[in-house]
Design a binder for these strands. Structure first.
Length: 618
DNA sequence: CTTCTCACG
DNA sequence: ACGTACGTGAGAAGT
């Protein structure tokens, strides 16, 4: 046994590194004596839980506010058994991102399943996000352990992540290679000390977060609710999705050929890098085109898709417009960049993220956006192209299964109607009217045209996003003056939207620029964009409508079928013979009343590939 | 690291 | 006083 000690915020701590099997006896005695919440953390060979061999889990750490134990699982079966038994015996656990990462690690590498682990585990990532959901870039604290330790425990607490990176550098490993996490000796003093500090800090952080949540009046029920969401999403990550490698390789070749073909065309016009906006802009000007649109920063001429499509005379669905002679360079740049992006961003990631069984395990961050929305990375399966089935066809349901996708119908508009109490909108939704058609009839009269309906829909979306007439006009193609007039009528028909916006803004100012969502989330606003409160309220409540639906699905035993949450949709892998029945059950879980407004959903049953739901045959 | 672009809801 | 499109992840180029 090697002993460590130190002090945080003036309170001393002691740490114990179990070096020999006999050291584990004292650890197990300590485990048996624990009655309170113990912080758990792991050190691993990186982040690829499913693609690394049995040596992936290196250290398992357990700690209270003043005491830490490090179990080097890699030393052999006795250590492994001790860590496993501790996880099973300890009555209450906590940790930082412990459900989304360490829980998956012990599920896969120690056989302590998420179903057993999660119900007794708190996660300080959740409390951190409930206190401030903003990233550092957005002016928040972020959710990393370091800023939280510094703010809530001890400003001089070491940055263990940064500190280890430094140690790795001294040992000759670059940060990017990740080799430090694999090769640093299990008993390296800094590695061990920081492993201990992480659980001591994590243990103290839970107490500090709970006190702060109480102090600020953040709704406590959100903590347990978010833990359930986090557990369900971890179970979806564990299930993963199968990659059709044969099909993926074929499409890789198709896209490669497309890239080569159009790179050659671009080169004829002097463009050697189609991803260089500066090169593309000057080459287009040399061909006699006039560019007027500026980029967001105003520093350069924009050559984004909308500009290039106009020059190439194609719509966003590649249909000829017929308003001019297509510019061949614009066409080549569009085609080459799209094919290149699809190849590298999607196909490459599918192949690289695959585990030995051929499955990807998308990482679901359950509280990532500042509105509480989820995000998914590695791969970013929320953002696969939807206008073409090519990319989604790479992903398959389980053998013998088909994909079922269930969408909420216009959920953000319904949430707006509910939260803002928009009388006529609510009445129309209760009556089962086509909302945008109904709005068009109010704004343009009973003889409204499809173009009128499109404008009405655009204005509705503009209200949810806080957009103005210029943007709605740009999106719908209607003249700005017409849109302006229609928006004025819209406001008089649905006056409660503006009233709610004013009320939310006033209340947010009283709360220190924080708006409280319908479910009790505290969402900080930016002083110069207070109008965004309407969007924050709608987006955040819509996220919780999905969260509530997920809870319904778990209660009905549907969780094993679920694969992904996608904002207003869930994707499920279901045995072919039960697909229709399960689709209807998921629909029911996604159907309920929100403050007098019906929230409804619609299921689609596809084939084995995800692409089958996007126009492909299988 | 920032800027630009593009994929999604 | 007035009006403001919202939220993400990811890759390539260039500083």
């Amino acid at each position: 046994m090697k002993e460590y000690s130190g002090s945080l915020a003036g309170v001393p701590w002691r740490g114990y590194l179990c070096e020999r099997p006999e050291d584990l006896n004292r650890f197990m005695e300590w485990v048996e004596a624990q009655r309170g919440t113990v912080c758990f953390d792991t050190e691993t060979q990186g982040l690829k839980i499913y693609s690394t061999g049995p040596g992936f889990l290196r250290l398992a750490q357990f700690g209270t506010a003043t005491e830490a134990w490090v179990i080097p699982v890699e030393l052999g079966p006795a250590f492994r058994t001790a860590a496993t038994r501790a996880l099973r015996r300890l009555p209450s656990l906590t940790g930082h991102n412990v459900i989304g990462f360490d829980g998956l690690v012990v599920d896969e590498h120690l056989g302590v399943k998420l179903e057993e682990f999660c119900p007794k585990t708190q996660d300080t990532m959740i409390t951190a996000k409930l206190l401030d959901p903003r990233s550092p870039e957005a002016g928040g604290m972020g959710a990393k352990l370091k800023p939280h330790s510094a703010y809530f425990i001890d400003p001089s607490a070491p940055d263990t992540e940064e500190g280890l990176t430094e140690v790795f550098r001294e040992l000759g490993y670059t940060k990017k290679s990740g080799l430090g996490w694999i090769h640093i000796p299990w008993n390296h003093p800094t590695y061990v000390e920081y492993a201990m500090l992480d659980v001591i800090l994590g243990s103290r952080l839970l107490v500090a977060h709970m006190a702060e949540i109480e102090r600020r009046g953040v709704r406590r029920a959100l903590i347990d609710y978010e833990r359930e969401i986090s557990r369900m999403c971890a179970i979806m990550t564990r299930a993963g999705m199968y990659v059709d490698d044969e099909y993926t390789a074929t499409q890789y070749g198709v896209l490669d050929a497309e890239v080569s073909k159009y790179l050659a065309v671009a080169e004829r016009y002097g463009v050697t890098s189609v991803n260089s906006p500066a090169q593309v802009a000057s080459a287009l000007q040399a061909m006699g085109e006039t560019l007027t649109k500026k980029t967001k920063s105003g520093k350069s001429l924009s050559v984004d898709g909308s500009v290039l499509r106009r020059l190439a005379d194609v719509t966003d669905k590649w249909e000829r417009i017929g308003s001019r002679t297509p510019n061949p360079l614009a066409n080549a740049v569009l085609r080459a960049t799209r094919a290149g992006k699809w190849k590298t961003t999607y196909l490459d990631t599918f192949l690289h993220e695959r585990d030995p069984r051929g499955y990807i395990h998308p990482n679901i961050q359950t509280l990532e956006a500042r509105t509480g929305r989820m995000s998914i990375t590695k791969p970013a399966v929320q953002t696969l192209p939807s206008g073409d089935s090519m990319i989604r066809r790479c992903l398959l349901a389980e053998p013998g299964h088909v994909f079922v996708s269930v969408d909420f119908q216009a959920v953000e508009m319904r949430v707006l109607a509910a939260l803002a109490g928009v009388k006529k909108m609510k009445a129309a939704l209760i009556a089962g009217e086509d909302l945008h058609g109904y709005t068009a009839s109010l704004v343009f009269g009973p003889d409204y045209t499809p173009a009128h309906r499109k404008v009405a829909k655009g204005i509705g979306l503009g209200k949810v996003y806080g957009g103005g007439a210029d943007h709605v006009a740009g999106q719908t193609g209607a003249p700005v003056a017409d849109v302006r007039r229609a928006m004025a009528t819209y406001d008089s028909v649905y006056p409660e939207i503006k009233q709610a916006s004013n009320r939310w803004q006033r209340e947010a100012r009283q709360q220190g620029l924080v708006t409280v969502s319908a479910t009790g989330r505290h969402l900080p606003l930016d002083r110069e964009r207070m109008y965004a409160v309407v969007n924050y309220q709608c987006q955040s409540a819509a996220r919780d409508v999905l969260g509530q639906a997920l809870i319904h699905m778990d209660e009905k035993g549907l969780l094993p079928f679920l694969r992904l949450p996608i904002h207003d949709e869930v994707l499920a892998s279901v045995p072919r013979g039960e697909a229709e029945e399960v689709a209807r059950e998921i629909e029911r879980c996604m159907t309920f009343d929100l403050m007098g407004v019906p929230i409804i959903s619609e299921a689609e049953v596809g084939g084995r590939s995800w692409g089958s739901l996007y126009g492909a045959d299988f």
